[in-house]
Amino acid sequence: MTENLSNDPIYNTNWCDVPKEIKLKCIKTMEFKERLSLRCTAKTERSLVDSQKIKIFCGRFYMSHFQLNFLPIESMFRSFKNSDEAVEFTNYILKIGVFRFIDFHYHDLEAMNFTEQISAECISFHSSENKTVVDVLQKLKAGVKSIMINAKEGINDYAFDEILAISHMWINEDSEIGTIFQLSRTYQGPRPSEFQRIFLEHFTDHIVSNTGKRIRIRTNNPDHHILLERGLDYNFDDDDEREVCCDQFFRLIVISAEMKESEYDDKCMKWICVIDSENYSDYDDDPDAYVNEYLENIENDDQVENGELNPNVEDDDDW
């Protein structure tokens, strides 16, 4: 039984004689910088390195540079020499990276030709053009937990029609209870009343209830509803100019059809501060929790100033 063992080859002793599967095992334990160096040594090594995924805690991509953070401590920053290198390198990282967080910061006139599928849990866009957003979303693999689109810094071409299509998508795909989509509008965006009008038009045949602050629609699944919630309450007294100036926050959430109105979560600050942590904070843990209480009852927009809110208010059901 043991005799044929002696016919096995005598091993040599350098990297080039190591079997491919062992090389891959070694590469798996390498940090990103070493992988980059190894892939520059020869074509064969490059193809091996490129076949290996690597977990990246956070990646930030710009047209001029990128920054990667790995757990527990490794981080990497690199500038691109030109746009060709930016495209090639970014696509390489997107190909091998399995991201927890990934941020895209592409501004006007910058275009990234995404060729690789993107694996990430949480994606953020910062002032990216609509094209970038759509390109990335089309490349996303399954497993995404959150997508944040920040259009605050000047880019302003997101169409509400497209965003409302999320509701259609959830209806078509029968999304799970708890699935959330949140958005905010600034003074540059369409006014909240216009948003409500578009939403109602889209779902005329699906409306279950409309309280002004919340619109509830049915889905194709009799057990699931979708709730559109407005965050902040203002009383504009038909003052169009003031409505235009104010920030507003909206949330779409898939809920159980059994959910009663008394069970709605009124603590809107919890989700507003996720979108705009600079101007709003989550005071939910504070036993006084006055911000949220008062926020729901603002009489006029003068009461929102530097995030401080006036408590003397009444409920407003108008959008």
Binding site: C16, C26, T29, K33, E34, S37, L38, A42, E45
Partner: peptide
Amino acid sequence: LTYCCKQVAMMVKGKSPEEIREIWMIP
């Protein structure tokens, strides 16, 4: 094998492509 592979990876920690090519005799 896992330990050994980690040790192999450590051989090139912080090395440039040229240095790796030299250490591992990669043509």
